[in-house]
Design a protein around this nucleic acid. Sequence first.
DNA 1: CTGCTGTTGCAACTGATTCGCAAATAGATA
DNA 2: TATCTATTTGCGAATCAGTTGCAACAGCAG
Lengths: 160, 160
Amino acid sequence: MPGIPEKKSILDDLAGRGLRLTSQRRAIVETIQDAQGHLDAATLLKLAQKREPRVNRATVYRTLDLLKRLRLIDELDLMHLEGEKHFYETRSKSGHFHLACLSCKKILEHDTPTFARLKQEVSDETGFSIDVVRLEVGGQCPACRNLSGGNSPLKDREVL
Amino acid sequence: MPGIPEKKSILDDLAGRGLRLTSQRRAIVETIQDAQGHLDAATLLKLAQKREPRVNRATVYRTLDLLKRLRLIDELDLMHLEGEKHFYETRSKSGHFHLACLSCKKILEHDTPTFARLKQEVSDETGFSIDVVRLEVGGQCPACRNLSGGNSPLKDREVL
DNA sequence: CTGCTGTTGCAACTGATTCGCAAATAGATA
DNA sequence: TATCTATTTGCGAATCAGTTGCAACAGCAG
Ligand SMILES: [Mn+2]
Ligand SMILES: [Mn+2]
Ligand SMILES: [Zn+2]
Ligand SMILES: [Zn+2]
């Protein structure tokens, strides 16, 4: 196993394809890689501008699109809990999927061997060559579940 | 098993909750139920207006939101192959998931017992009470796979 | 039939993302 | 290092999906 060369991997990949390493791309990519959670485009712009003020919103979207097409990042909907924006995370930490609590809006990451098996089965059964798999679950986290009383799920009051 | 009362189930559900069965809701709900494939809001509006011209775009969105919250329909992203719009289908035909061919943009529905097992596992392992599960796969369908030559996946030309 | 209250149409508005084009610049080349 | 050129960017306007406030409308209980 290498030391910690993981850090520059996306930029290396871009360079390897003959793409230009502009200061903007560096700032955007490094921001995504250093981010703890899931970033939306607006947040990514703000954070990237701390590293390189000359980053424009359009460039963020163009770079996200590029990284998506190169399969270096994954796009998440996270059940669109607030608005229609999307979120992004690096592929390296991939394999997991996301649970969104519809009450407290927290996002939980999870994985289980059955998920990998499912992908394999889908590939085998359908003949698809799979590029992206997005599994998202919406529900109520254990904390919110207790908090909202132990009665029946989905009382009218809560949903209407 | 009942005869074919399935048809009115959504409207019955709405009525049972004391919600009003307006001509607009009828048109929208029946359009969704009769639809073969996956409808986006704009298409749904157009089709619903054939049954009842007095259907407005806002009402379509409000009704979709209502049906979503009541868990009577599911919202799909279908990998946002074109634009950022969403698609809808009735819950009754639920249980399956969707494969989107990134080349020909066809949508394939699929299911496998492992999918049900996965949901159960997720529920057990995380303690979440699950309301919605969305599994979407992006890739290349068998037809497009052959068509694009048997060489390595993702040539630069195709992605840049 | 009447009245109350939930629903709707309208048209303006928002938020997210995309676009065309001229200016800037990374990286190859001399 | 200076030059060249295709790629990338900034800008600001445009598009697209979805939302909203409010007055008019219309289910449906009584
Ligand atoms: Mn994640
Ligand atoms: Mn989406
Ligand atoms: Zn919660
Ligand atoms: Zn295809």
